[in-house]
Design a protein around this nucleic acid. Structure first.
Lengths: 140, 140
DNA sequence: TTCCGTAATGCGAATCGTTCGCATTAAAGA
DNA sequence: TCTTTAATGCGAACGATTCGCATTACGGAA
């Protein structure tokens, strides 16, 4: 994902956009808030505004580059890997894991149909307590 | 749900609490935001503060009287009927319908288990376009 | 039934995440 | 290199929610 990739999406290859991409790629496994991305950039010595990070992330979302998830009203972003997945989050340590389940997907389609809906998206979040030894820590 | 019911839950039976209950009961089918409840009370001639509505709703939630749902960062409340359900919302008119599906529930249990989670809650929202004739209206 | 202590209220200020407005800067085609 | 136009950074504005605090009103004790 570089200069020419952005242009291909109709986005000028500006410094902030390239840097935000770098940060997201360096965190492929995780989910980052706009604030997280912003801090990562500052830590890397970049001079960028928080508003720009928000704008860039929204543009990337529109362009299909990233996916925005809504966890309790906060937006978390991740690069769009192309594979849909849902989330299971630990209510204690805040860890977010991904999963996907064909059975559930199929059922959802069916349910939408039964209710006269053309499904456009869906979000399934399971909350629970994970059993990791390092868990009983508060979300960072 | 009245005076004595509140006391049973360890909540003083104050005027604002009783009125909020009234409003919620008058809207059993729907999902209301704190603002919605507040407006309904004002319209009914009640003198209540928005902060109090928020506080009361949170207390009711804690007491297990109401359920709080998170739709794109906004909190919507409804009386807890005791039956768990998920939601399917129309991205055009904002209508929210409820459904529940045993297959999905079962699968979720299984998935949580497989990931070493003790499931405590979950939220499934399906987004789509409903086919109602009165639909293509923006959310109110 | 009245009286009191404490919890609940109402108000406005504060908070948090996010967006906007606008003057300034920097892509990228000519 | 020049120019046009979109993108940036800043701080102010925003909407939902919470907080702080002085005031009020439950509801148990007398």
């Amino acid at each position: 994902m570089d200069n020419t990739d952005l242009k291909r999406l109709g986005l000028k290859a500006t410094v902030p956009r390239l840097r935000v991409l770098d940060v997201l790629e360096a965190n492929r496994e995780g989910h980052m808030s706009a604030e997280d991305v912003y801090r990562a950039l500052l830590d890397a010595g970049e001079e960028v505004g928080l508003a720009t990070v928000y704008r860039v992330l929204t543009q990337f979302e529109t362009a299909g580059l990233v996916i925005r998830h809504n966890f309790e009203g906060r937006s978390l972003f991740e690069l769009d890997s192309g594979e849909h997945h849902d989330h299971i989050v630990c209510v204690q340590c805040g860890e977010i894991m991904e999963f996907s389940d064909a059975t559930i997907e199929r059922r959802q389609e069916r349910i939408a149909e039964e209710h006269g809906f053309k499904i456009s998206d869906h979000a399934l979040v399971i909350y629970g307590e994970c059993v990791k030894p390092r868990c009983p820590r508060r979300p960072s």
